[in-house]
Design a binder for these strands. Structure first.
Lengths: 343, 343
DNA sequence: CTGAAAGCGCTTACAG
DNA sequence: CTGAAAGCGCTTACAG
């Protein structure tokens, strides 16, 4: 902040009776400083509450000490609330950044944006964290471009074989299997899937496939006629469930690709006089805070957002430091509540 | 980012056949540039996708072009999810920052922190946006210190007469009145208040007082024996409602100081076999996204987080530019859903 | 309207 | 272990 007179390293040097270079060495933790000298400098630093000017430091080091988080959503209805799932990652990302001594810049983007903005951010930050749901095929090209530019980034999302850059994601396939297995154990046989299940949304697709595997293991099939596209939003879930109902095919369970979809679907079910879980079991995915308060409380597949956030930052830092880093898939777990019946 | 060779203004100058100073003038929108020269420079800038180095620029200008948002919560149970109310402000704050060409740094703090962190942030940003619930009396001193330091900041919260610095808040008194009036209109007479109602939480206190005014206007009182302290969290709301029930006093309505409290209270009510709204009406405050999905959907007092976020940023920018700025109270509105009965 | 030059506050070879 | 000095990439008086 602009204050009467912000102390600089020169002031500190003066007061401590050393050169400015030595002050700098002390503050950057250089081993090339006499212990006694260091103590003297540190005392003055503390007294004046001196902080290194990050701009000067970054300029000189050619490294910013800043990470940027880009949150994008698909067509994002103007005033939309941000996907709660990503929000819960925000906390752990922030904390992880602090632990690494990095600042966190945040920026919201439309998937449709030029992403010129990204490039801009990439000049401000040492690396990018990409969060967002959206048509994967649509932004794969942008990721490619980022790679070509030499931009360091890590994204949250499906871990795919040939993807550009690194991803941290969860075991979507395994999570889908957990959902299917649970439904099966409860005696459900006709499972509907709400959510896009194509390579446009690889995470959803894997959840679909995982569920299908679980059913297949029991000699059952996930009837494609019971699949309805939906993006991760309550409204979309509601619409999808209505569409499903309109098809008139029998089903006794819904596996929603996200909690938001599940919650919307339950609303539609209730409006149509169907009881959850008596008439139909519902499983979600994510375990957003709202899931607990849904009616009935939603059984869902938990993704560890805390660990995810940390891993995202840790991985990005490795990239920045030129260390070896790789994509990872985090395990999921089933959270049994009321929406499927006796757990 | 560190790339093979990032273009600098010198490169641009060279290619455009002008001096580096002129490039700088073009990029900062100086009027002291010939239109033709400007066009030539801009062409090169576009072609190389050149961006001004923010660190160099900030260092030179002694202004960072960055705003910092400090989000603090009271004792914050380690992995707690951030208060959803603040999260919904995040989006509009980010957008408003972008509109002002400012970057947004975000940082989470414990109210108990030394806030040395703040001072640190204050060196990185031109101004601070403070968001958080917590004991006002406990952090008033910190605000005072910020003022003394000359740090520019705006906080979201109660607009109080002698507070240090500026606040943007809502008409808590008016909102409380709207809640009380609505309850009254529905025939409710014995209103309980869940939430701290002391000067430690001035926002809650005003909501309480507003409700009390509405009742008084009808010749009724807000019985203090029906008030139970609670912080803004679902668990706290649940606990408070249990405590209220344990007191054994009759009541036919609950005005919760926040939606989270209301949702927790409804859970307790249900556990005790009480129906909402038949046996007791419930009104919340905030209108967080979850309110719509509560069971029953929660009638609540809406605070315009979108406008709030924008105002927070606009006000802070005025402060930074040395313009006149002042605290403001935003109007609230009643959102009728199902938790109070016929609306 | 344009250029040459100083300087923002650091970090880091380079000498010693 | 320490200091003097160069230089990171800009912005902005100062001349012209």
């Amino acid at each position: 902040m602009r204050k009467k007179s912000k102390a600089t390293s020169v002031d500190i040097a003066h007061l401590a009776g050393v050169s400015q270079a030595t002050v700098s060495r002390v503050l950057s933790g250089s081993p090339l400083v006499n212990a006694e000298t260091r103590r003297r400098v540190e005392a003055v630093v503390r007294e004046l509450n001196y902080k290194v000017d990050r701009h000067a430091s970054s300029l000189r080091r050619q490294r910013s000490g800043t990470l940027a988080m880009l949150l994008f959503e698909d067509p994002t209805p103007d005033e939309s609330h941000i996907n709660p799932f990503f929000l819960s990652m925000l906390g752990s990302i922030t904390r992880a950044c602090a632990r690494h001594g990095q600042d966190l810049l945040i920026s919201f983007q439309q998937l449709s944006d030029d992403w010129a903005g990204d490039y801009e951010d990439s000049m401000k930050a040492d690396g990018l964290i990409l969060l967002g749901y959206g048509d994967y095929l649509a932004y794969q090209g942008k990721l490619q471009k980022l790679v070509e530019q030499g931009t360091r980034f890590v994204r949250w999302g499906a871990v795919l074989p040939d993807q550009p850059g690194l991803s941290i994601g969860c075991e979507n396939l395994g999570g889908g299997r957990q959902a299917g297995t649970h439904l099966l154990a409860l005696g459900r046989r006709r499972v509907a899937f709400l959510g896009d299940a194509s390579s446009h949304y690889p995470e959803f697709l894997d959840r679909y496939l995982g569920c299908e595997q679980a059913l297949a293991a029991a000699g059952l099939t996930l009837d494609r006629a019971l699949q309805v596209d939906a993006e991760s939003a309550e409204d979309a879930g509601h619409a999808a469930a209505c569409e499903l109902l309109a098809r008139g095919l029998p089903f006794d369970a819904i596996f929603a690709a996200s909690d938001l979809i599940a919650i919307g679907a339950m609303r539609a079910l209730a409006e149509h006089g169907l009881r959850v879980p008596e008439d139909v079991s519902v499983v979600g995915f994510d375990d957003i805070p709202m899931a607990r308060f849904a009616h009935p409380p939603l059984t869902t597949i938990f993704q560890d957002t805390k660990q995810a956030g940390e891993l995202l930052v840790d991985t990005l830092m490795k990239l920045i430091h030129g260390e070896q880093a790789h994509s990872v898939r985090l395990p999921t777990s089933l959270v049994v509540r009321k929406s499927c019946g006796a757990g």
